Amino acid sequence: MSLGLELPAEYGYAITVAAASLLLNPYHMILTTRARKASGIPYPNAYATAEQANKDPKAMAFNCAQRAHANYTENITPFLGFLLISSLEFPRAGAALGGIWVLGRIWYAMGYTGSNGPNGRRPGAYMGFFSSLGLLAMTVFASVKRLPQF
C-alpha cells in the first residue's frame, strides 16, 4: 500500500515559518556569546556555578542566556514536527500558530536575558506553550485523518 501526499498550495507559509524558526538559533548564539564574554566564564564550562551566579550579575546573565538557548534547542524539534505535519491539513492556521510560536520564542529570549532574568521569560513561554498546544491538536487531527480507512 502506498500513500500519496499532495501539499496544499499554502504549504509555503509553513515552510517560511519553519525557516524563520531556524534563524532563532544564531540569535541565541549571539546572546550567549556576548553574555559569556561579558561574564568571563571560560570554555568548556556550559554554565557559571551557582556561587558565581549569586555573586556576579554578569555570570547570572550568562546562565540565563545559556538556558534560554538550551530551551530553544529542546523545543525546536517538536515544534517543527507539529508545524509541518499540522500544516498538511491546516496550512494557514499552522503557519499562523507557528508564527506566534516564533514571536513567543523571541520574547522568551529577550525576557530571559533582560533585566528580569528568569522571570522575564514567562510571557514568551506562555505564548510559545499555547501555540504549541494548538499545533499539537492540529497535528493529531491531521495524522488521524490520514490513517487508512477500514
Results as ranks from 00 to 15, higher is better:
residue 35 A to I: 01
residue 66 Q to I: 03
residue 119 N to T: 05
residue 52 Q to F: 10
residue 74 E to C: 07
residue 28 H to W: 02
residue 29 M to Y: 02
residue 79 F to Y: 13
residue 7 L to N: 08
residue 132 S to N: 15
residue 87 S to V: 07
residue 148 P to C: 11
residue 25 N to I: 04
residue 101 W to S: 05
residue 121 R to L: 11
residue 61 A to Y: 04
residue 9 A to Y: 13
residue 88 L to N: 10
residue 4 G to D: 05
residue 5 L to V: 15
residue 113 T to S: 15
residue 40 G to A: 10
residue 83 L to H: 07
residue 12 G to L: 12
residue 130 F to W: 15
residue 13 Y to H: 14
residue 21 S to M: 05
residue 94 G to P: 00
residue 19 A to L: 12
residue 71 N to E: 10
residue 3 L to E: 13
residue 47 Y to F: 15
residue 3 L to P: 02
residue 128 G to L: 03
residue 102 V to R: 00
residue 142 A to F: 03
residue 61 A to R: 12
residue 6 E to K: 09
residue 144 V to T: 11
residue 64 C to N: 13
residue 62 F to N: 05
residue 22 L to R: 08
residue 149 Q to E: 14
residue 132 S to L: 08
residue 97 L to H: 07
residue 122 R to Y: 08
residue 103 L to R: 00
residue 3 L to F: 11
residue 106 I to E: 01
residue 132 S to T: 10
residue 78 P to H: 11
residue 36 R to M: 02
residue 99 G to L: 00
residue 14 A to C: 13
residue 115 S to F: 07
residue 69 H to G: 03
residue 97 L to Q: 08
residue 46 A to N: 11
residue 41 I to V: 15
residue 101 W to N: 09
residue 10 E to D: 15
residue 76 I to L: 14
residue 26 P to Y: 00
residue 72 Y to C: 05
residue 83 L to I: 14
residue 83 L to W: 08
residue 15 I to R: 05
residue 76 I to T: 10
residue 35 A to Q: 06
residue 15 I to M: 12
residue 44 P to F: 09
residue 88 L to G: 02
residue 18 A to Q: 08
residue 127 M to Y: 03
residue 143 S to F: 09
residue 100 I to T: 14
residue 108 Y to T: 01
residue 2 S to G: 07
residue 14 A to L: 06
residue 89 E to A: 15
residue 15 I to W: 07
residue 114 G to I: 03
